[in-house]
Design a protein around this nucleic acid. Structure first.
Length: 426
RNA sequence: GGACGGGUGGCCGAGUGGUUGAAGGCACCGGUCUCGAAAACCGGCAUACCGGUGAACCCGGUAUCGUGAGUUCGAAUCUCACCCCGUCCGCCA
């Protein structure tokens, strides 16, 4: 959601933003429609308010007549007529407003100036860490961890109980998941200053709209039959909506929250892509960071938070690179995003394990998350940021592939040994 | 899931159809008093949107008493649905 004034006063800016995302052809005409609707909306408001003022004055007139014990039937009759006209005007206003709002919710956030225009091919590798292990002779993680290997990953039975894209970890595999959760949350709370939260794994429609999954991406979400509730696609949704319709204490900003959650995604339209092993799942686990800050702080906060996510990979000794996403590859609500990609030598690919974004005031407007800047000033929209730190399945894939040994075993990285109580998987 | 009770401004809390955007109190801000403070007293104290020159001040208007719809010339007040909170019952981890 954008400032209405942006659309009214600087529609060119919105068009330019859409061009950089490569969406101008498809979404550009919608801007024209929105502009027209916004003008019509104000005309309607004006007409309806004038009529209502007239009706209100009449009502007072009726009251005075009644008080003075005068006959008011004529006035009441006029009021009836006025009321009918008002109903018609209100109806028109509501319809126009609904059409406008529906449209306004479909425009993506405006990317920051340092985000390159264009699609995926315009992404930029900003930096990298560690030395990627050569892929020669290394096996993919499903091979190592599957039933013919360590037996810690059971894809077949996951598919049996839920369907393709749902997995079961077992034994040390399950313990690895639990250990990763502990490692990451401890790191972010103890060393990066995040407050740990535990949140609902289902959310209502208002929350989904607040963080901009709705209305545009409703078909991507799992709904709960019989209730207007949805499985979360990321903890970003419940954690960011924690402060929906609230005014944050400015003295407490910037502030960060860390949480674990499972994430549920229908991945509609992604069938057949990256379907092997742990590369793309309908349910996966993730530790998520969410930060709230004042507008002038958000660029630095993004760098800071990205560093926090990187720290996990460094702790685990896994080579990775940081990619600045081009506008077309940047998520709907985000203004700037860094992806963290970890090297998985078994599949010979860089795997996206984190996405760290600033959403500027885009989500804050939708979710009405504000703070009071300076002492007495009026509340202003906060900026929200979120980043995975880190998503588990691809991390586990990379970890297994990176630490695999010739005999088919997998070494447990030092940082995980206390929680795992083991130095090898299998 | 069932029964009953309740949702009013930053907080507490009046208010069952008409000068109620809403009494009173607390908190907060300004002032008088005081060497200073407290107390006391006086005054102020919601937000959003539309328009008056797209600044400020100000002025006019509209909306907002959980949400939405309805009745009415007129709704915080009456009706219906929904949401949330409390208490009891049922059920369960």
């Amino acid at each position: 959601m954008h400032d209405l004034r942006l659309l009214r006063e600087r529609p060119g800016e919105l068009r330019e933003a859409l061009r950089r995302r490569g969406m101008l052809d498809t979404t550009g005409p919608e801007v024209d429609r929105a502009e027209a609707l916004e003008r019509q909306r104000r005309t309607c408001i004006h007409a309806a308010e004038e009529k209502r003022a007239e009706a209100n004055a009449l009502t007072q007139e009726v009251r005075r007549h009644k008080q003075a014990q005068l006959d008011a039937t004529g006035l009441i009759e006029r009021g009836r007529v006025l009321g009918a006209e008002l109903d018609r005007l209100e109806e028109e206003r509501a319809a126009t407003e609904a059409a406008f709002t529906a449209l306004a919710l479909e425009f993506p956030n405006i990317t920051l100036p340092d985000v390159p225009a264009g699609g995926e091919t315009a992404n930029v590798v900003i930096r990298s860490w560690g030395t990627p292990r050569p892929a020669d002779g290394l096996r993919p993680h499903w091979d190592i961890a599957g039933p013919d290997g360590l037996g810690i990953l059971d894809l077949a039975r996951g598919a049996k109980v839920a369907g393709s894209g749902f997995v079961a970890f077992r034994g040390l595999g399950a313990r690895l998941v639990r250990s990763l959760m502990t490692l990451m949350i401890d790191l972010h709370t103890r060393e990066h200053g995040y407050e740990e939260v535990w949140i609902p794994f289902v959310v209502n429609r208002a929350s989904m709209t607040g963080t901009a999954q709705f209305p545009k991406f409703e078909e991507e979400q799992y709904g709960i039959a019989g209730d207007d509730l949805f499985l979360i696609p990321t903890a970003e949704v419940p954690v960011t909506n924690l402060y929906r319709d609230e005014i944050l204490d400015a003295a407490a900003l910037p502030r960060g929250f860390v949480t674990y959650s499972p994430c549920f995604r229908r991945e509609a339209g992604a069938h057949g892509k990256d379907t092997r092993g742990l590369l793309r799942l309908h349910q996966f686990d993730k530790v998520e960071l969410v930060r709230y800050c004042a507008p002038d702080e958000s660029p630095a906060q993004l760098e800071l938070m990205t560093g926090h996510a990187e720290a996990v990979l460094q702790r685990l000794g896994l080579p990775y690179r940081v990619v600045l996403l081009a506008a077309g590859d940047t998520g709907f609500a985000a203004a700037k995003t860094y992806d963290l990609e970890v090297w998985a030598p078994g599949v010979g690919r860089w795997l996206e394990v984190s996405s760290c974004s600033t959403c500027t005031d885009f989500q804050a407007r939708r979710a009405n998350i504000r703070f009071r800047p300076g002492g007495a000033a009026k509340p202003a929209f906060a900026h929200t940021l979120n980043g995975s730190a880190i998503a588990f399945p691809r991390l586990i894939a990379a970890l297994i592939e990176h630490y695999q040994e010739p005999g088919g075993g997998v070494r447990v990285p030092d940082a995980l040994r206390p929680a795992m109580g083991a130095d090898r998987l299998g």
